[in-house]
C-alpha cells in the first residue's frame, strides 16, 4: 500500500483508485498509507450533498462539477449508493447522470457502496475523502445515499452541506420534523420547474424562520455549534449561519450559478473568525470519539473469555441479571484482563 502514496500525491489516478479500494476493503497496510497521506490533506473544500432518493442529487453534482471545472478547479466526486442488506451486492448508478464529466482529467468519480454498518461507512467515506484531498482536488463533492441517519453522519465530514429537496415530497409538517433539514447549510429546491414548487419553498422558508436561531443552537450540537464570538472591537456577535434557500433546475443547469454563489458565501463565512478551524475541530472530535469507541469495543469483546457473552445472555433471559449490571461485570472482566 505504502508504495502507492507517492504516485497518488503526484496525481496518478490508478494509485488513487487502488487506495480507495483498499480503504473500502479495510485492507492491511492501509493505515500506514493513510498516516503518510494525512499531512497532505486540508486543501480541498468538501461539499456534502444529501436528500431523498430521486430529488436530483447526481444531476446537481454533475452541474456543480461542471461549474467548478469552468473556474479551472479540479473536482473529486464520491457517490454513495446502498448495498443490499440481503446479498451484500450493490448497483451503483450515479455515474449514469455524470456522463458529461467523463473524459475530463480534472474530474475523478468514485462510486461507493454502503456495505455493512453505518459506522463503517462513515469511516470509509472519511478516509476516501482524505485520499481525494491528498490527491490535490480543489473541490470534493460527496453524494450520500437516499435517506436515513447515515447522511447526517457524512455531513459531519463536509465544510458545506447541501440538502436537496424537490416539490411534492411532503407537507409543511415534514419540513419542521427533526433530522436531515437541520444539517443544511444550503437548502436546494431542485426541479423548480415542476408544479408545487411554491408550496415547497414556502414550507421550507417557514421552517427556517421557525428554526432560527435559538432551536438550531441547541439541536445542531455536533455538526455546527452556534457560538458567540468576541469580535475585534470586543462586542459579542451572533455567529449562526442562516441557511440559504436556492431553487434550481439541475437538468437544464438553471440557477446552478446561484448555488455556486451560495456555497462561496458559506465558505467566506466559515473562513472568517476562525469558524472553519472550529468546525474542523468538531469534526475531528467526533471522528476520534467514534474511532476510539470502535477500538475499545473490539478490545473489550476480544478480551472476554469464550462463551462469556452467552453466559451473560442466559442470565439476562432468566432474569437473574439485569443489562446494566451485566455491562458492569463485562467491563470489570476486561479491566482484570488488562491488569494481567
Amino acid at each position: 500500500m505504502i508504495e502507492l502514496v507517492d504516485p497518488l500525491i503526484a496525481g496518478d489516478r490508478r494509485a488513487l483508485a487502488r487506495l480507495l479500494t483498499a480503504v473500502e476493503n479495510e485492507r492491511g497496510g492501509i493505515e500506514v498509507a493513510l498516516s503518510a497521506l494525512y499531512p497532505h490533506t486540508g486543501h480541498a473544500w468538501i461539499i456534502g450533498i444529501t436528500g431523498a432518493p430521486g430529488t436530483g442529487k447526481s444531476t446537481l453534482v454533475t452541474e456543480l462539477a461542471k461549474a467548478y471545472r469552468a473556474q479551472n478547479e479540479t473536482v473529486g466526486i464520491l457517490a454513495i449508493d446502498p448495498s443490499s442488506p440481503f446479498t451484500g451486492g450493490a448497483l451503483l448508478g450515479d455515474r449514469i447522470r455524470m456522463r458529461e464529466l467523463s473524459g475530463d482529467k480534472g474530474v475523478f468519480i468514485r462510486s461507493m457502496a454502503t456495505r455493512g454498518s453505518l459506522g463503517g461507512l462513515a469511516r470509509a467515506a472519511r478516509d476516501a475523502i482524505r485520499l481525494l484531498d491528498s490527491a490535490g482536488f480543489d473541490r470534493i463533492l460527496v453524494e450520500t445515499v437516499g435517506a436515513g441517519q447515515s447522511e447526517v453522519d457524512i455531513a459531519r465530514a463536509a465544510h458545506t452541506t447541501l440538502v436537496i429537496e424537490a416539490p411534492g415530497l411532503g407537507d409543511d409538517i415534514q419540513a419542521i420534523k427533526a433530522g436531515i433539514l437541520e444539517i443544511a447549510d444550503i437548502l436546494v429546491v431542485n426541479k423548480a420547474d415542476h408544479p408545487g414548487v411554491e408550496n415547497t419553498v414556502r414550507a421550507l422558508k417557514a421552517m427556517l424562520e421557525l428554526g432560527h436561531p435559538t432551536s438550531r443552537t441547541q439541536t445542531v450540537s455536533h455538526h455546527r455549534q452556534s457560538a458567540t464570538f468576541l469580535s475585534s472591537n470586543g462586542e459579542h456577535q451572533d455567529d449562526s449561519w442562516i441557511p440559504q434557500l436556492i431553487r434550481t433546475v439541475a437538468t437544464s443547469g438553471e440557477c446552478v450559478t446561484d448555488l455556486v454563489g451560495a456555497i462561496e458565501e458559506h465558505r467566506t463565512f466559515l473562513t472568517q473568525n476562525g469558524r472553519k478551524v472550529m468546525l474542523e475541530r468538531q469534526h475531528l472530535h467526533t471522528e476520534v470519539i467514534e474511532r476510539l469507541s470502535e477500538q475499545l469495543l473490539k478490545q473489550v469483546l476480544a478480551a472476554l473469555p469464550v462463551d462469556e457473552l452467552n453466559v451473560t445472555l442466559d442470565s439476562l433471559q432468566s432474569r437473574t441479571l439485569d443489562p446494566q449490571t451485566a455491562v458492569k461485570h463485562l467491563l470489570a472482566q476486561h479491566a482484570m484482563h488488562m491488569a494481567k
Binding site: T87, G89, A90, L91, L92, R95, I96, R99, G103, S111
Partner: peptide, 17 residues
Amino acid sequence: RDAGMEVIYTGLRQTPE
C-alpha cells in the same frame, strides 16, 4: 448485484474512452 457483487452501471452510449 443479487450474486453479491458491486456493479457500477454507466448507462447507454459510452465511448471506449
